[in-house]
């Protein structure tokens, strides 16, 4: 093995040592949902944000709360409602009668981990305020600008079953989420274990095992993970196939795709691929890493047409077709 990769591998091994520790600690509280926990780690280490879709009761809140507990980081949960205002989220100026001055009152967004619960229940201006903070990682209240805490991870949830009276996120806003994760019900065995755990006298609690500094160092290590040109080309092929499937011999998909992944899709797929390699404690990316995370990176970036809906085709089935057709390096 060449010296460079060896060095990278060693560094990755060293920096990712906490991953197993973190997983073990999270597993004390969260039973099953391994994919969701992995995606949380991808978002955390890839410095991105996650849009989570799943029916209520699938441990979404518990997962991010546990992650925060494992790192001794600050966690805030914001319930998005139709009457929520941007000031309720980012904070506002309050008049102090004692000194006769306006003082800044920071909102719940000033935390390391934010759970934006049912983000689509709030109007566009609140969604926009959150998404802007997510992107800029800073908030301006009055005339003062505040940097948000690091690490900063927003996990927004959407309920797929109750769409009445909601404000669906615009495509441009959805694109800002690194991953869109779909959570499914736990297996029978997992649910039995969950049931037993929750009715037991002592509910397990996660304890801090990682510092936020470890996370920041790990993020730096993610960037040095080696990605070969062949993998870069593979990522581009996948993303370009969502835009022009006919160029990849998938003319049949053309009428079903309204628009494909943006350049942000390529960036995030590459970054998520590196994080996948990192959490698998490898110093280089292999096609498996890309394929494992491709659905979560692309599903909210590939919009399907009415024809596709009529044919009961989803963005997932289109991505699957693309993954099955584009040649692996």
């Amino acid at each position: 093995m060449s010296v460079d990769i060896q060095e990278i591998n060693e560094k990755v091994q060293q920096q990712s040592a906490f991953i197993d520790l973190l997983r073990t600690e999270i597993a004390k509280v969260i039973i099953g949902q391994k994919d969701m926990v992995n995606r949380l780690l991808v978002g955390l280490l890839g410095n991105g944000h996650i849009l989570l879709e799943g029916v209520p009761g699938l441990a979404k809140t518990t997962a991010i709360k546990t992650l925060a507990s494992c790192m001794d980081a600050q966690f805030h949960r914001i319930q998005f409602t139709p009457d929520l205002l941007p000031a309720d989220l980012i904070g506002t100026m309050i008049y102090n009668q004692k000194n006769g001055e306006f003082q800044t009152k920071q909102g719940p967004i000033f935390a390391n981990f934010i759970l934006a619960d049912e983000i689509n229940r709030s109007p566009a201006k609140v969604q926009s305020a959150l998404l802007e903070a997510m992107q800029e990682r800073q908030v301006t209240i009055g005339e003062e600008t505040f940097r948000l805490k690091e690490p900063f991870l927003v996990m927004a949830t959407q309920n797929p079953i109750e769409q009445e009276g909601t404000y669906p996120l615009p495509e441009a806003q959805v694109d800002r989420f690194m991953l869109k994760v779909i959570i499914d019900y736990p297996s029978r065995e997992e649910e039995l274990e969950i049931m037993r755990q929750q009715i037991a006298s002592a509910i397990p609690v996660a304890t801090p095992v990682v510092s936020t500094e470890d996370i920041i160092r790990a993020r730096e290590a993610v960037h040095i993970v080696y990605m070969d040109e062949k993998i870069e080309k593979y990522i581009l092929d996948l993303v370009l196939a969502t835009r022009k499937p006919e160029d990849f011999g998938m003319e049949n998909l053309k009428p079903y795709i309204s628009y494909g992944g943006s350049p942000r899709a390529s960036i995030n797929l590459a970054l998520a691929g590196k994080v996948m390699a990192f959490i698998n404690r490898r110093g280089y990316v292999i096609p498996e890493d890309i394929r494992a995370i491709a659905y979560d990176v692309l599903r909210h970036r590939v919009a399907v047409t009415y024809e596709a809906e009529a044919e009961e085709l989803t963005s997932e089935s289109i991505i699957q077709e693309i993954l099955n057709t584009v040649e692996v390096p």
Binding site: S2, K230, G283
Partner: peptide
Amino acid sequence: ADLTKFAKYV
């Protein structure tokens, strides 16, 4: 082959 292709392995 994968190591050679993707990890600069010689």
